[in-house]
Design a protein around this nucleic acid. Structure first.
Lengths: 153, 153
DNA sequence: CAGCGATACATGCAAATGCATCTAGTTTGA
DNA sequence: TCAAACTAGATGCATTTGCATGTATCGCTG
């Protein structure tokens, strides 16, 4: 209600974001320096991973772009690289001639799985000793709530 | 104890990290597209911010490098840019001739404050509607605990 | 249904990034 | 004490990124 209370709400939000961001940096730094990403950069793996989670097996480029922190043009060229390596395939979207559907090739699926196995172990090695299972569930809930709220403008 | 329980602990850790990461992407995407970062890229602001928080007003490049997701060489050149713009100053560390201390100039301090004010408001606009104050405090606690654990190997 | 703005993705180009390596200063241990 | 190993940071160079823009398709409106 009072002026300081408004200001402290802003401060709390800022400190929360700062902490979330720094923890992400710390974890990502460890993960990407591991041997799992010698054969494929993390950002490229992330696209393979996103495709592997998708029920239909296909995603539009703009849908992928929402999930990764890359400009549209950078994603377009990242996909060029993946395609050149035979890990994904572009198809024109059937219902929209402008759109491009991306799908994993068999090689892409296998590479994703191989890296994924190692990656998941690396994650567990970092996260499991840091937080209890209950804390992890709460962190999962809070970050998902934040993401959903931000995504919905 | 059973096989699935070990595997589900790994899965929980992976899902927690995934959610943390995606929420970071979603928030960062909004923040960096705002008008606050028209005059200075986010990564460069982050270095100014880090310096502004530091009690002594000076930090070694390798200390800064721990906080940001950049290679050593990229940070070195990012600091070149900041220095060329007159926002920071390099000094040889008095106790270690190899080291470089970085400090804000007056112009750097002012630009950080100006961008910071707007940035903090943007953060609050995204975070405050998403999570209650208690939830933010809990998210802050959990991410800080994770960061501390990961930083300490 | 014609034309105009909007959307999806690609591309030219300048800037930023990372890897490998270099230089210089520091620490270690025989 | 001094050479070898190590650490901090800078730099050459190839790759990646983003901005601005181009091309093709879509959808709306008169």
């Amino acid at each position: 209600m009072s002026a300081p209370s408004g200001s402290s709400a802003v401060r709390l939000a800022a400190e929360t974001w700062e902490s979330l961001f720094r923890s992400q940096v710390a974890v990502m730094r460890k993960l990407q320096s591991g041997p799992a990403f010698k054969s494929l950069p993390v950002k490229e793996y992330d696209v393979l991973f996103t495709l592997s989670r998708c029920p239909s097996g296909q995603l539009r480029l703009n849908e992928i772009n929402d999930k990764v922190l890359l400009s549209q043009s950078s994603l377009s060229r990242l996909v060029d690289r993946l395609e050149k390596r035979g890990l994904v395939e572009r198809t024109t979207a059937p219902d929209d001639g402008r759109g491009v559907l991306l799908a994993l090739t068999e090689a892409g699926r296998e590479l994703q799985k191989a890296i994924g196995r190692e990656h998941v172990r690396d994650i567990a090695t970092l996260v499991a000793p840091a937080l209890t299972a209950d804390e992890q569930r709460e962190l999962l809930r809070l970050t998902e709530k934040l993401r959903a709220s931000v995504a919905g403008h």
